[in-house]
Amino acid sequence: MLGRLYEGQNCSVAKTLELVGERWTVLILREVYFGHRKFDEIAAGLGIARNVLTQRLQRLQEEGVLTKVAYQERPQRFEYRLTDKGLDLWPVMVTLMQFGDRYYAPDGPPIVLTHRDCGGTLDAHRTCTTCGAKLSATDVRVHAGPGAQPQAA
């Protein structure tokens, strides 16, 4: 079994892969970027084992990518929010999504991101194709795209 560390490599890509290269981690972040912040929402969106999700969320918290915030006292419930460090990964997520849309989505993108203010889409540089604004994770809405498939019941 391969380890998750790239010891002896003085490389920022290797260091980043130690975090986001774990199975499920990028998909967990996708769910949070798309507005699913509660444990059960994330689990349902992924079909991930609860113990694996717990471990990955804990690691993302330890690395300062997510923070855990109580939203209910009795019973105590939490949601996971992106930190500034987590928001800084958004361009990577969009680039991965656009790459997948181009090469692995023959029926069209399953998800479309639009600018909250004007409804325009994002170009390859995360700029709104309608108004020209440079967009961040907080500037977009998530919609089902032409390649979306119905959820299994």
Rank of each mutant, 00 (worst) to 15 (best):
Q9S: 11
V112I: 15
A105V: 08
S12F: 12
A153F: 15
T83R: 07
R141Y: 03
E63D: 09
V26F: 15
R126C: 09
L66V: 09
K85P: 00
C131P: 14
V65T: 13
S136N: 14
E63H: 08
G108V: 13
K134T: 12
V26R: 14
D117T: 14
V112L: 08
C11M: 04
R56G: 01
T114M: 08
E62Y: 09
R126F: 05
H143M: 13
P146E: 14
G47S: 01
T95F: 10
Q72G: 07
D107V: 14
A14R: 05
D101V: 00
R102M: 12
E22T: 14
L89N: 03
G100D: 09
T138Y: 14
A44L: 07
D88H: 15
C11L: 09
D101N: 11
E31A: 09
P109W: 09
I42F: 01
V92F: 13
V92K: 07
V92Y: 13
H125I: 06
R102P: 01
L89I: 15
Q98G: 01
Y103A: 11
R81Q: 13
T25M: 09
L89M: 12
F34W: 07
G64C: 03
R56F: 07
V94W: 10
R77D: 00
E31R: 11
L113E: 03
G119Y: 03
D101F: 04
S12H: 07
C131R: 10
D101S: 02
R56Q: 06
E41L: 11
A44S: 04
E79C: 06
C131E: 11
A44I: 05
V20L: 14
L17I: 04
D123T: 06
H36K: 14
E18V: 06
L89K: 03
F78E: 08
G100W: 00
G119H: 05
P110I: 10
G132V: 14
L53K: 00
L113M: 13
V20F: 12
K85C: 01
R4T: 09
G3H: 02
E18F: 08
G35I: 13
Y103D: 09
L66K: 09
F39C: 03
V94R: 13
T83P: 03
R37L: 08
G147S: 07
R126Y: 02
Q58N: 12
C11G: 07
T16R: 08
I48H: 03
V52N: 05
T114F: 01
C118F: 07
Q151V: 05
T130M: 09
L5A: 00
G132N: 15
P110H: 10
K15L: 15
A148H: 15
R37Q: 12
R4Y: 02
D139G: 15
V69G: 02
V140Q: 03
G47Y: 06
K38Y: 01
L66Y: 12
F34Y: 08
R23K: 10
D84T: 11
V112E: 10
V94I: 10
D123I: 02
F78D: 07
V94F: 09
Q98P: 04
G8W: 00
Y103T: 12
V69S: 04
V65G: 07
Y104G: 00
G119T: 05
V52D: 05
N51C: 10
